[in-house]
Design a protein around this nucleic acid. Structure first.
Length: 576
DNA sequence: GCCGTTTTCGGCCCGACTGTTTTCAGTCG
């Protein structure tokens, strides 16, 4: 069983235990374990099979959880979970997805009214039975009825790039409000996660009323869900919920730290505060109610003996370990990138010519690009066969003279076919300056066939890098089933590069895989996969993903100057 | 269920808002 599935099992176990009223800290241990396993780059199944490796050496995993992980990895079944599923009906678990209904209330509905499905819950609400229950009332009953509708059209996470324009618009509107000081988006948006589940915006002001009214009246907002003195929650038209928090300016740093999260990161921060006889909350860092820090984020970290950890690293993974050891990476920045090695032109499915792409890249400060149109298999995208490709490359050579100041490389995005061969012959690929090999078709093939395809591609002397490794589309389709660790080992062995595809719906490879690639010394390349001159704008998303992986400029090959990149390529290429 | 230069037992992050309550539990982030 894969890590992601193991994580899901532990989360479900935690949900079920919570409904049964188990010790909340025990529940947290399971949730913790779900997150830890989900974040592991390596498949636990391989660790379990290795007698030299021990799962319970991972912080947060003790003897008991290690045994349960091993059971799940090997058998795919956890007896304790099966037993809980018998005891708690699925419908009761589903009730906790209704906003405002938590494990306690769901358990009460089950116990007091014998409800086991969402349909029964609806009927009980309509019959007025729920309002009569102790701890419930008319408003709760009405909220459940409305919540049942929402569960049907469940609020999905949105892509970071979908949320960004709306967030920036709301920030701009709040900055206009008289009396408002700083306005800053926080939460997973500030951590630059690939998708955002809800938006958090922090405001400093002595009086929250005007900021809250501005938000309530904003055309992007459809409904005010709750509104207090310092906190307001609204629903946005794009389908996301948003929290507005208002704090005084002396609390800005502490509040920004707190609302940026992640939850796991903050738990460690607060524990550090306690260890030092301090208390940390969103208003500041206090010793005996006297403020020690709070105005700036850096001040809060410094008072806890830490450098200011970049938001992208605040996931409760390795950031504290790195910070303590003085090994916090100097994260890559968008301006570090000098080349872009994955883009399309009108020769296949792009919207711009070679020259237009080169000029747009030059205008953005790039020093080199590789034109990588599709290979013939991608007929839908007008993919190139050998003849057309060679003509295209001659055209590239011609355009080089027209656009000085930028190097234009003859590249190809070569499909790795379903039968594990490459879409173009070796003699053609050998003429390319840059070959990025990718999976487009047959993503649902069995894992072993996918692995065979990737192995063959990586071992080809003509392939320089693997592009959008899994083929996933975030929130729309999963990637191909593969043993990522084995792929990375193969890349490291063969000295090949790995792409971080910057397109916001791909961001493939993800942060965890990129971090593991760095550990193995595999050079990453961040590419935009542009299909138009505006395509270059997505570079920042790839860089943010790299930052979340803890990558420095030195870990990303296309931060090199053109000559240095070419040398790196030559060193890593086997003789052709 | 995890963890230990305060501890192998007894802790485990902290506060806002709502609704149902007359002082607080549940939910959420």
């Amino acid at each position: 069983m894969h890590n992601a599935e193991i994580a899901q099992h532990f989360d479900e176990l935690a949900d079920l235990l919570e409904i049964q009223g188990a010790n909340p800290f025990r529940v947290r241990a399971y949730r913790n374990a779900a997150r830890i396993v989900g974040d592991l780059a390596e498949q636990v199944a391989t660790v379990v099979g290795d007698p030299a490796r021990k799962l319970d050496e991972i912080p947060g995993i003790g003897a008991d959880l290690a045994a349960k992980i091993a059971t799940l990895a090997q058998t795919g079944v956890l007896p304790q979970l099966e037993e809980l599923r018998q005891q708690v009906p699925l419908g009761v678990l589903q009730m906790t997805r209704i906003p405002g209904l938590g494990p306690k209330k769901a358990a009460a509905l089950h116990k007091e009214l014998g409800l086991t499905t969402l349909e029964q819950l609806r009927a009980a609400c309509e019959a007025g039975q729920v309002a009569a229950l102790k701890g419930f009332g008319k408003k709760t009953q009405q909220a459940i009825l409305e919540g049942l509708e929402q569960v049907a059209t469940a609020g999905q996470r949105l892509l970071l790039a979908e949320v960004e324009p709306v967030a920036l618009e709301l920030v701009a509107a709040l900055r206009e409000v008289p009396g408002v000081g700083q306005v800053e988006p926080a939460g997973s948006f500030r951590r630059r996660r690939e998708s955002v589940g809800d938006l958090d915006i922090l405001v400093t002001a002595d009086n929250s009323a005007d900021a809250m009214q501005t938000l309530a009246d904003h055309p992007r907002v459809t409904q005010v869900l709750s509104r207090g003195e310092t906190k307001m929650r609204v629903r946005l038209k794009i389908g996301l919920e948003m929290d507005l928090r208002v704090v005084p300016k002396e609390s800005y740093g502490a509040a920004l730290q707190y609302f940026t999260g992640s939850k796991d990161h903050n738990i460690v921060m607060r524990r550090r505060a306690i260890e030092r006889g301090l208390k940390l909350n969103e208003y500041g860092l206090f010793r005996d109610d006297q403020p020690v820090a709070g105005e700036t984020e850096a001040g809060v970290y410094a008072a806890l003996d830490l450098p200011c950890i970049p938001p992208e690293l605040r996931e409760g993974r390795h950031e504290f370990e790195w910070a303590e050891a003085g090994r916090l990476p100097r994260l890559i920045e968008p301006g570090d990138v000098q080349g872009d090695l994955h883009m399309h032109t009108t020769a296949s499915d792009g919207a711009a010519s070679i020259r237009e792409m080169a000029e747009a890249a030059l205008a953005r400060g790039l020093k080199y690009i590789a034109i990588t149109d599709h290979s013939q298999r991608v007929s839908m995208a007008n993919g190139l066969d050998a003849t057309r490709l060679r003509a295209h490359w001659r055209e590239i050579e011609r355009v080089r003279a027209e656009v000085p100041g930028i190097e234009i490389w003859k590249g190809i995005e070569c499909d790795i076919l379903e039968d594990a061969t490459l879409d173009l012959a070796d003699d053609v690929l050998a003429e390319a300056d840059w070959v990025v090999a990718v999976l487009h078709y047959g993503l649902k093939q069995p894992r072993e066939q996918i692995m065979q395809r990737l192995r063959n591609a990586i071992r080809s002397p003509h392939v320089d890098a693997i592009g959008h490794l899994t083929g996933r589309m975030i929130g729309r389709r999963p990637g191909a089933d593969m043993d990522v660790e084995a792929v990375l080992q193969e890349l490291a062995r063969e000295g090949k590069m790995l792409e971080i595809n910057a397109h916001p719906s791909r961001l493939d490879v993800d942060d965890i895989t990129a971090a593991r690639a760095k550990e193995l010394g595999i050079p990453l390349v961040i590419n935009t996969d542009s299909h138009a001159v505006t395509g270059f704008d997505v570079l920042q998303y790839g860089v943010h993903q790299a930052r979340r992986a803890g990558l420095e400029a030195a870990d990303v090959a296309n931060t090199l100057a053109p000559d240095a990149f070419r040398q790196l390529l030559q060193r890593r290429r086997p003789p052709r």
